[in-house]
Design a protein around this nucleic acid. Structure first.
Lengths: 257, 257
DNA sequence: CGGCAAAATAGAACATATTCTACAAATGCG
DNA sequence: CGCATTTGTAGAATATGTTCTATTTTGCCG
């Protein structure tokens, strides 16, 4: 079954940039233990205030636990991929009970998303630290996407997770939005706003106008990128070919920038 | 768990066109019972000609069985979605043993792909029968994609399956290629080549030059479409908005057509 | 027809995500 | 402090995709 690649004993940390300050204040505001009182099948025998409601804020130990879980998950994912990232293993290796794991991440997908989100933080940090230099908006956009591509391809298993979570997640993922925002900023020369290594809160890109006509085009380019990623993962393309195709698409989509 | 929508007792048949000749000679050439001798874990104790090799051709009863399976699967998928399409249920309702089901479709994904492929046949048929009338290539392309979108949205659960299989399937799916080919033909006014209601063989679109520079752009548009589909399924967009976005993307991508 | 290999069947067995139960530890509050 | 509520733990129990085994049926060939 799960017998694909298997990189050596890499320390999992970043995938995108070579030397990112990993421990940057990335999390600290992400989902914590979940309220259990959500959608119950039982009718109405319990007080309106169902069982357990999350404090909303995570205590220190909870933050620690969460981080430990995500890191453990990432470590497992980097080797065997999503398949190797089994909930039982993660729980065990992270030193938490299975139930606890599920309290923090209601489904495996949530966990995958958490891992991927952390990678995205690193990508953003890397871009800000070393912004693309191309002349045209299209060139810069392609640059960013290609950097992300090459970074991800260093850990194909994780890349697989990224793509799957981008597309499948029922979860309220804004992962694609984050990527589009990043591309948008790069294309329009508005990189400053980004906090390197971690997002502040929901509305990271304060200066990104998602209603702008151009944003739709950037979003389209992101779609194309994701799909090219899929093709790579399926073994149907190599990075060079993707580069060419992204260039073609970007030149058309971002021509009016 | 699987408690989403649940259309009435529709007869599952087509999703795309209102009155397609369902029973058209669609399958009849698709995967049949699989050779078991593929990737074995055991080394070399058996004759080179491992256990079971498929005749390649399906006998009549096998064709019947296959069709029965796919139809059963489709029926289940139309109501509860992929989740409701449980292998055990499919096998039971189709009147075959679980093992047999797995002989025909080595994984659930293969089954999903088979179902979706059949829907695609219907879309192609519908398009050929009632081709888009827009003036511009971009207009025609958008027309096709929107027709597909509306058709799919009539059965969101199936749409979900389509998207997932398009993207996830390890399977050697050419589903996206088929869509791109269709769009390409429509955009370039080369619709004739298509056999309504069913593909002949691997290379259905004989007149589609996938190396053409323009084909890359059509492929990009298809990527965008698929992603918009995902957004609809996530409840983040409505069809009208997708139409607008597809127009924008198509006008840029296919400007040079 | 008799026999044989491929195909199908019934059903057990496995693997893994997810849920549930009972209990213990921690945390906060009067 | 002492209790109540929340959080965490251990581990059983479910649900479902997938595989395996033993047996029977089918289709074919001499």
């Amino acid at each position: 079954m799960g017998s694909k690649r298997c990189a050596g004993g890499k320390s999992l940390d970043n995938v995108f940039s070579a030397g990112a300050p990993v421990g940057a204040g990335s999390d600290e505001r992400l989902s914590g233990p979940r309220r259990v009182g959500g959608a119950r099948t039982d009718d109405e025998w319990e007080n309106p205030v169902a069982v357990q409601a999350p404090t909303g804020t995570l205590s220190r130990s909870q933050t620690q636990r969460r981080k430990r879980i995500v890191q453990t998950a990432a470590a497992l994912a980097v080797r065997g991929g999503v398949d190797a990232m089994q909930m039982r293993s993660v729980a065990e290796r992270a030193g938490v009970a299975l139930g606890t794991l599920y309290r923090y991440f209601p489904s495996k997908m949530d966990l995958v998303v958490a891992v991927v989100t952390e990678e995205l933080d690193l990508l953003e940090g890397g871009i800000v630290r070393r912004p693309p230099t191309a002349e045209t908006p299209a060139g810069r956009a392609v640059d960013v996407l290609l950097r992300a591509t090459r970074g991800l391809m260093r850990e194909p298993e994780l890349a697989d997770a990224l793509v799957r979570s981008l597309i499948m997640a029922e979860v309220k993922v804004e992962l694609d939005t984050r990527i589009s925002d990043l591309v948008w900023r790069v294309a329009t020369d508005h990189l400053e706003g980004v906090a390197p290594g971690g997002a502040e809160d929901g509305d990271t890109g304060a200066d990104v106008d998602r209603d702008d006509a151009g944003y739709v085009l950037v979003g389209s380019l992101t779609s194309v990128w994701i799909f090219e990623l899929v093709e790579i993962l399926k073994g149907r393309r190599d990075v060079d070919e993707v580069e060419r195709r992204l260039h073609t698409a970007a030149e058309h989509l971002l021509a009016s920038f």
